[in-house]
């Protein structure tokens, strides 16, 4: 593949897009800023000295997308039809993830605009929080997807597993080592994201009672994130059969917790 920003002499060169057909272009980029849990709490409580951090960072990201051509030498100035910035405040991992979507009808892609928007949004988050936290780290800035254009659509292979229970294709899930008597616990879909992990193994001797209620209590004692398991919406299956709080658990059982189903 040839780099279009280099001419035959290998010099930087702005690509002439005048002959390209106008198509609807869209790109989504993402990144995140990791911070101390206390900083994240101040941020989500709106208690930081510089005021509403997320609203300011959002505006910064939108402005940055519009000015990408001023920052990146060979980028064209584009009339974007839409820029949106989304945040996900993740207390479990103690970070704010940022997602930027840019769209236009035009002759050139908008991934640089989306990446610039994410970068400047993260920088603004840093600026807004730096009075209380110098350790913050901006990371994982990347293109997630792009649509439209001659090279076709692109979509980053998801790092989150599409299927759970047996690992993704080509991967072997070994799971945590556990001394018998042992129960393997799985968290599926939204619940996996809320507890921040997909598998945990626990020794049955740590359970006050060898049933689902006992398992929930033992997990909640390990980490407060597992208190979500006591939510009425949370469902449970033992060895892939629906179960409830009084269902017995025995050695080597597989217990799965998951939210209400939404297939079809």
């Amino acid at each position: 593949m040839q780099l279009t920003h280099l001419n035959t002499l290998g010099e930087a060169n702005m690509v002439d897009v005048g002959d390209k057909r106008e198509t609807r272009r869209e790109a989504v980029a993402s990144g995140r800023i990791v911070m101390q849990p206390e900083t994240l709490k101040l941020l989500s409580d709106g208690a930081l000295p510089k005021g509403d951090v997320l609203a300011t960072a959002r505006i910064a990201g939108i402005q940055a997308a519009k000015r990408t051509h001023e920052l990146i030498p060979l980028c064209h100035a584009l009339a974007l039809s839409k820029v949106s910035i989304d945040f996900e405040v993740d207390h479990a991992n103690s970070w704010v993830s940022v997602s930027a979507m840019c769209r236009l009808n035009g002759r050139t892609g908008v991934e640089m605009e989306a990446l610039t928007a994410v970068s400047v949004t993260c920088l603004t988050l840093y600026d807004m929080c730096k009075a209380v936290d110098k350790e913050m780290r901006i990371e994982a800035i990347q293109l997630e997807s792009k649509r439209g254009g001659v090279r076709g659509d692109y979509r980053r292979a998801s790092s989150a597993p599409i299927v759970t229970g047996e690992g993704s294709a080509g991967e072997v899930s070994i799971g945590e080592r556990c001394v018998s008597p042992c129960v393997r616990v799985k968290f599926l879909a939204e619940l996996r994201e809320r507890v921040g992990q997909s598998d945990v193994a626990i020794n049955l001797d740590q359970l006050s009672s060898r049933d689902v209620a006992g398992l929930k209590a033992a997990l909640a004692q390990r980490d407060t994130r597992f208190s979500v398991l006591s939510d009425q919406r949370t469902l449970c299956a033992i060895n892939q059969v629906m179960a409830n709080d009084t269902s017995r658990i025995t050695d080597e059982d597989e217990v799965a917790f998951f939210p209400p189903v939404t297939g079809g």
Partner: peptide, 17 residues
């Protein structure tokens, strides 16, 4: 046991039952 996660211009979210 299927779960849908929707992708939209407003972001990504799990579909409610």
């Amino acid at each position: 046991p299927f779960w849908k996660k929707e992708h939209s211009n407003e972001g990504v979210y799990w579909v409610k039952e």
